[in-house]
């Protein structure tokens, strides 16, 4: 094993520095800012999904293979690579499939008080979870299987964006048993 702390120069052949620059202070770093601008264009299924938010509706995509419903719509069933064209309207109620209590700020989300709870929300009628904030209760009350419902922005503030849902709050309904919550619901269905 070579000594990890050998200087880089000891690993190369002798380098002669031209006299004209030999007295100069070495450059330790250069700062070169990069600014690149991208225009992201939502594909038709995503446009439809975003527009539906302004009507306080959540759209999913139904797989032609076995009817599994994906949200947000992805255009394809990732298990088969099959194109999906059928949209379905989903409930704005569901359950917490899993969650995380975060104590770190998110760049660009100064509005969030720390700690906050992000969760995989499994909507009624959907077969995968998608991310949402859970609030309206104490953080330590959040649990796998907890029933939740979307809290929407005021009518006049609604736009074509998923941000129309401020957060998800508990409904007070009985929880989904852990063994049937989240992704496990699919396995239960097929049993």
């Amino acid at each position: 094993m070579t000594d990890p702390n050998l200087s880089p120069a000891s690993l190369s052949e002798e380098i002669e520095i031209p006299e004209s620059i030999s007295g100069l202070e070495p450059v330790r770093s250069v700062r070169s800012p990069i600014k690149l601008i991208y225009d992201f264009v939502p594909s038709p299924p995503v446009q439809e999904y975003l527009r539906s938010y302004s009507k306080k509706k959540i759209l999913g995509h139904r797989s032609p293979i076995d009817g599994a419903v994906f949200v947000p719509p992805r255009g394809v069933d990732p298990r088969h690579g099959a194109l999906i064209e059928e949209s379905v309207e989903l409930s704005d109620k569901g359950h917490v499939g899993n969650f995380c209590v975060t104590n770190l700020p998110i760049p660009g989300r100064d509005d969030l008080d720390i700690p906050y709870v992000s969760a995989w929300i499994h909507l009624d009628g959907a077969n995968v979870g998608f991310l949402g904030l859970v609030a309206g209760c104490e953080n330590d009350e959040v649990h796998i299987g907890m029933r939740v419902q979307a809290v929407w922005k005021k009518e006049e503030e609604l736009g074509n964006t998923a941000e129309n849902i401020l957060y998800w709050e508990p409904t007070g309904e009985p929880s989904v048993p852990v063994e049937k919550a989240g992704n496990r619901a699919w396995d239960q269905r097929n049993e």
Partner: peptide, 9 residues
Amino acid sequence: EVNEVQLMA
């Protein structure tokens, strides 16, 4: 009309 994922599918 489609995204990259749909195109490649």
